[in-house]
Computed example of a mutant assay.
Amino acid sequence: MTAYRALALQLETRSITGLADPRAELRPAIARVDRNLGGAKAWIGPDLRLVVLPEYVLTGFPMGESVAAWRDKAAVAPGGDEYKELGEVAARHGVFLCVNAYESDEHFPDLFFQACVILSPEGEVVLRYRRLHSMYSPSPYDVWERYLDAYGIDAVLPVARTEIGNLASLASEEILYPELARSLALRGAEIFCHPTSEASAPDLTPKAIGRRARAIENMAYVISANSGGLTGIAIPGDSTNGGSELLDYEGRVLAAAGPGESVIAAAELDLDALRRHRLRPGMGNLLARVKPALWAEEYARHDVERPDGLAHAEPGRAWFTARQREVIERRYG
């Protein structure tokens, strides 16, 4: 299959942070995804094969909870019932489904990670990416040596080779980090699935600019699903509402959604056209002109955020803030 429809399914994010029984809300959230995805498939047509959901669509984000409290409140197990049900949703509608959720991990029982998971039309997990850049949440880089021992580098930077193309994912503000997307592109990624929950505005935002840059410089499609509003927290609900979009491998917007829950951010992806673009010699073939060895040597000279910061530290909001202050002082003080 070289041409098909993809959708950034823009759904409202309902926070569980203040609820008496937050885990009881996970199943209804999955049911909302199922219902809306069924409507989207009927609206768009049977050639809809790839659907990306907004960031933390099942739970919202932590609002001051400790790492342990949020793990117990919101994190799902990689092999748990929630993923089984999401796999059934993907299979029922015959799509590859990208969902972003907080996960527990048997190797790191004191932590949680934020994950982008892609489920196949057979209901199987074909990709699990754990967010590497996060201001106030643990990441694999914070427990780097143990994480590599448990999973290896290919699990840190995964690319799923599927019948609808080579899929990769990055979360929210990670669209602002060119090294991450470039590394995934060098590993073969053709389509970036980008679950996000971000400020929407009439003018281009930093993340919108980042999406265009990552599409152009990596010669890849970007499917970015934003929240269709926030409820359940003391933040104005329309602060993250709308702007889901699909971009082609030259940074052109193929489709974009306005505010509210929406199926408007849908368009055709043409893998043959993308692959012809990547095979064409010339100044525009940026991937063929990358100099990884040069930048690997240069990057190694610079001491910025260090790995394994949580190896012997208690994870908490104060620690994450202190780490950044230490980096700023060391680099610029």
Rank of each mutant, 00 (worst) to 15 (best):
M1G: 11
M1P: 03
Y4D: 01
R5G: 02
T13H: 09
T17S: 14
R23L: 10
P28I: 01
R32I: 04
N36F: 10
G38I: 00
G38W: 00
I44E: 01
V52N: 06
Y56L: 14
L58Y: 13
A68Q: 12
V76P: 10
G79I: 05
E85C: 00
E88N: 12
A91Y: 05
A91D: 02
E106H: 02
F108N: 02
Q114I: 11
A115K: 06
A115D: 10
A115H: 09
A115C: 05
Y129F: 08
Y129S: 07
S134N: 06
M135H: 12
P140H: 04
Y141F: 14
R146G: 09
P158K: 10
V159I: 07
A160T: 09
E173K: 15
L176R: 15
A181M: 07
A189P: 05
A189R: 03
I191D: 00
F192V: 04
P195C: 02
T196N: 14
S197L: 13
E198K: 13
A199E: 13
S200Q: 14
P202L: 11
D203H: 12
T205W: 09
S224K: 01
N226R: 11
G229H: 10
N241H: 10
G243C: 13
L246D: 00
R252N: 07
A267N: 04
A273M: 08
L274V: 01
P281E: 07
G284W: 13
N285I: 03
A288C: 00
E305W: 15
R306S: 01
R306Q: 11
G309S: 08
P315V: 11
W319K: 09
A322Q: 14
R323P: 00
